[in-house]
């Protein structure tokens, strides 16, 4: 039990009459970096707001560090939140933004200066202390927002889509930054994202949510390699997902006999798991594109489109040609609804 640092128990969350999260149980371990992943409207942001205390649950409990905080207001919970828009205070300098929470705690000026300077240093903004947020770049603003939350040494840090407003290079920087901060402070972090790549790259564990419920929970490689439901497979980038009936794969009113036994309702293959040029099935090449290290095929088969990849050196085949392929038992994922 001591392992569970943040505990959501039978949590139900609603906006007015709209029930967003009907019944959620989730345990988050101390020092873990956990991602709430899901499409928009799945309740991930609502759940995060409930942890922060920005919305009151209809029923259920939120425990942080073995204390029931369900009725504790947001400003007394000791939780940090980095907003998607950063929500920096435009009328205050970078220094004063970070000092904001400390000033409310009535610390001495020298103490405040010491702590703010240390955090500005940590996020690499010491030279911009006097600057206003509007005169800073997106990456700098985000690091400032991070410092503003972390200077208060929160028990839990929540991050709303932490990488979504950054370009590709800054994303990598920020990812390293977050992992470094987490390693140095051992703080428990919960972040919300709709981007599976972001969740896979950053989190220790991923909570995949759908319609306010947990669809699957596990380590990134578990989710990536072994999604358990059709939704999970789809969300994690499986492109070939087919229904199974009586040992045949069905689609578009056609059926193809399977070459192996399964009890699953659905089967899914990543493009790389589809074998080409041999096998029992046939299809027409609808498109070929060269993507550097590999060649990507879209094949029009009786049961629908099949997406497959091969190493680029192989198979210089043309659009319109007929190609043989197989959906083998190696690399298949068995799914339920």
């Amino acid at each position: 039990m001591s392992d569970n640092f943040v505990s959501l128990q039978k949590l139900s969350l609603a906006y007015g009459q709209t029930l967003v999260v009907p019944h959620l149980d989730l345990d988050i371990r101390k020092g873990e970096l956990i991602a709430l992943l899901g499409p928009s409207g799945c309740g991930k942001t609502t759940t995060m707001r409930a942890i922060a205390g920005l919305m009151a649950p209809q029923s259920g409990h939120i425990l942080i560090d073995a204390q029931d905080v369900t009725r504790i207001p947001a400003n007394k919970r000791g939780i940090g939140l980095v907003f998607q828009s950063y929500a920096l205070f435009p009328h205050l300098s970078a220094f004063e933004n970070v000092a904001f929470g400390l000033r409310l705690k009535k610390l001495t000026n020298s103490d405040i200066t010491k702590r703010v300077d240390r955090w500005l240093e940590t996020v690499g903004l010491a030279h911009l202390a006097k600057r206003k947020p509007d005169d800073m770049s997106g990456g700098q603003q985000q690091r400032l927002a991070l410092a503003r939350s972390l200077v208060l040494e929160p028990k839990v840090l929540l991050l709303d889509e932490p990488l979504s407003n950054l370009d590709a290079r800054l994303r990598l920087d920020m990812r390293l930054e977050l992992q470094r901060v987490q390693l140095e402070t051992g703080i428990t972090m919960v972040f919300v994202t709709h981007d599976q790549a972001e969740a896979l790259a950053l989190a220790n564990r991923i909570v995949l949510m759908k319609d306010g419920k947990i669809e699957q929970l596990g380590a990134p490689d578990e989710l990536y390699n072994a999604p358990q439901t059709r939704f999970a497979a789809d969300f994690l980038g499986f492109q070939n997902i087919f229904e199974v009936e009586d040992q045949t794969i069905v689609g578009k009113g056609n059926a193809l006999p399977l070459s192996f036994q399964t009890k699953a309702r659905y089967l899914a293959w990543r493009p790389g798991a589809v074998t080409l040029e041999k096998g029992k099935y046939e299809g027409k090449i609808k498109s070929v594109s060269f993507a550097g290290e590999q060649r990507e095929f879209v094949i029009e088969a009786p049961i629908g489109q099949i997406k497959a990849t091969t190493p680029a050196a192989n198979l210089p085949r043309q659009i319109g040609e007929i190609i043989r392929f197989d959906l083998p038992s190696e690399g298949v994922c068995e799914l339920r609804e």
Binding site: L54, A74, N75, A87, F89
Partner: peptide, 27 residues
């Protein structure tokens, strides 16, 4: 003025009135 600025102030320890006085009014 974005509303999340006030929420940010609250999470940094401000009350609702404090957030209005310290964040909303100056802006």
């Amino acid at each position: 003025l974005r509303g999340d600025m006030e929420e940010a102030a609250v999470l940094l320890g401000c009350g609702r009135v404090g957030a209005f006085m310290r964040i909303v009014l100056p802006n």
